[in-house]
Simulated scan of single mutants.
Amino acid sequence: MGDRERRVVFVTVGTTCFDALVKAVDSEEVKQALLRKGYTDLLIQMGRGTYVPSKDSGKLNLQVDHFTFSPSIADYIREASLVISHAGSGSIFETLRLGKPLIVVVNEDLMDNHQSELAEELAERNHLFCSRPQTLQETVEAMDLDALQPYMPGEAKPVVALINKFLGFPV
């Protein structure tokens, strides 16, 4: 890599099993899309998943590594140039609070997936990009980081109200 600036993509599935996301970021197509966007490293936190991503980037000049769990992912998020995350609210809000560009990948296998509504609402407000595992490559290729709007923590109340309404709790 010489003196080329490191641009790390950090992928997190939290404590869940989200093999579809790990497989998607491990695909040659997504790795090539990340390289075309100028990213140099891919670090995957794979949680309880059974799919183990390849550390061999083949002909690609992308450094790839993975791990299962960490006591805190905050340092990984801080060091990242881009975060690709499951749709868990903790991971989403921690990344937005740290001001990092974020692609949220919705796990469509979850029943009553309120997480997709949270991700889609924040995407509509231009705080993040929302994707599915099968559309991750297209999302990476189309993303314009300059279009993202900073997330202001005071905005959580409307989002919480939306989640509570969806779950049938008093607003």
Rank of each mutant, 00 (worst) to 15 (best):
L82M: 01
A119F: 07
L102F: 07
A147M: 14
L110C: 08
D75K: 14
V105A: 10
V22K: 00
L42W: 06
L82F: 02
A74T: 13
D56N: 15
Q149I: 13
I103W: 04
A147P: 06
D144N: 14
P101A: 04
G14F: 03
A20Q: 14
I77Y: 06
V159N: 05
M111Y: 09
G14Q: 02
E108F: 01
T15V: 08
E5S: 08
D75M: 09
K59P: 10
P101R: 01
K59C: 05
R97L: 13
S116R: 08
K31R: 15
F10A: 01
K165Y: 02
M111T: 09
I84W: 02
P71E: 15
T68V: 06
T139S: 10
Q63S: 08
K157D: 15
P170W: 03
E120A: 08
H114V: 13
F129H: 11
L35P: 00
F10M: 11
T95I: 10
L21V: 02
K31S: 13
F129R: 12
E117Q: 07
S85D: 06
G47T: 04
L35H: 00
E155S: 14
L167M: 11
M1K: 12
Q32M: 11
V11C: 05
V104D: 08
E108Q: 12
Y76K: 12
R78P: 00
T95C: 12
S89A: 15
A119Y: 07
L60N: 06
A161V: 07
V25Q: 02
S57N: 14
L21E: 03
A33R: 05
D75Y: 04
D3W: 01
D75V: 04
D109H: 13
V9L: 11
L35F: 00
C130N: 06
I77G: 08
L34T: 02
E108Y: 02
N164E: 14
E28M: 09
I92H: 07
L167S: 06
R7Y: 08
E94D: 13
S70V: 10
K157I: 15
R78L: 10
V52H: 04
S57P: 14
K55P: 02
V171A: 13
A147W: 12
K23L: 01
S81K: 05
R78N: 14
M143A: 11
I44T: 13
E138K: 13
G90T: 03
S57E: 12
P133Q: 10
L128Q: 10
P133K: 04
L148F: 03
L21K: 02
L82R: 05
M152K: 11
